[in-house]
Amino acid sequence: MNSTTNISLANKPKQNDPVMIELSGVSKEFVKPSGEVHTVLRNIDLQIGKGEFCSIVGPTGCGKSTTLSLVAGFDQPTNGTIKIQGETLQGMNQHAACVFQTENAFPWKTVIDNVSLGLTLRGVEKAEAYKEAKIWIERVGLKGFEKHYPHQLSGGMRKRVALAQCLIIQPQILLMDESFSALDVHTRSLMESELLTIWEETSASVIFITHDLEEAIALSDRVVVLTAGPAATIKGDYQIDLPRPRNVSEIRFDADFMRLHEQIWNDLRDEVMISYEQSNQS
């Protein structure tokens, strides 16, 4: 078992790849309506390589999603800088797309209009955009549903639309904000393995936010643990040296998986307990 892990490590080209996303000394503060300053994130230093699949886990309300919205450019950090391919991020992140926990698809657009939107917004002609969209719709397994509206699709199918919508613009960064947490267990593991299949064909870096440690380990090259909020910061940073391609539904029974799970959980457990006690107090 150990030997396979080592081989996979040696085979991995991603270790020495250039830095895609770089957060240095990033903190985020909000002013509450009561006038107090609420610190969400404090002193985050994080580098994510090109093509790296990095998960961020942490207890509820620790600022995982805030980190993501900073990288996406929805929000600006209070202190510190975010660099994308060496350039300081200002405004929207032009290289990123995001799969949200709730809906990505616009309910008033059909599947094909939803998927081709990223291209038409960039000025690609409609016929051309549709052609490209059809390829992506087929790739995520929604062929035949081009003219359907989102509310006619199941939760899992809507996530497929979201994936196609993001990937059609060939983003260098794919942000996923608890994207699969609203799905049922079976659909979820199906979507996880499809995500991996599609991702392995691209060179996109992924930031995957989740509260599910198993999901994080099964999918990622790397798992980052945040401390309990407020003022969350990075507690641990783990390389996941499991071989790829992975079978997401069965990897959970792998001895290496369990070893990693135990190791990271030891770190995460304390934070979850702190967070739980805080929520009980307030």
């Binding site: 929805f74 929207m92 797309a97 995001c98 809906e103 990505n104 917004l121």
Partner: peptide, 17 residues
């Protein structure tokens, strides 16, 4: 929906779009 607005902005929508 804030998410839909953010999604469109990230996909490259300008103000008019």
């Amino acid at each position: 929906d804030r998410n839909l607005v953010n999604n469109a902005r990230l996909l490259g929508a300008n103000k008019r779009q």
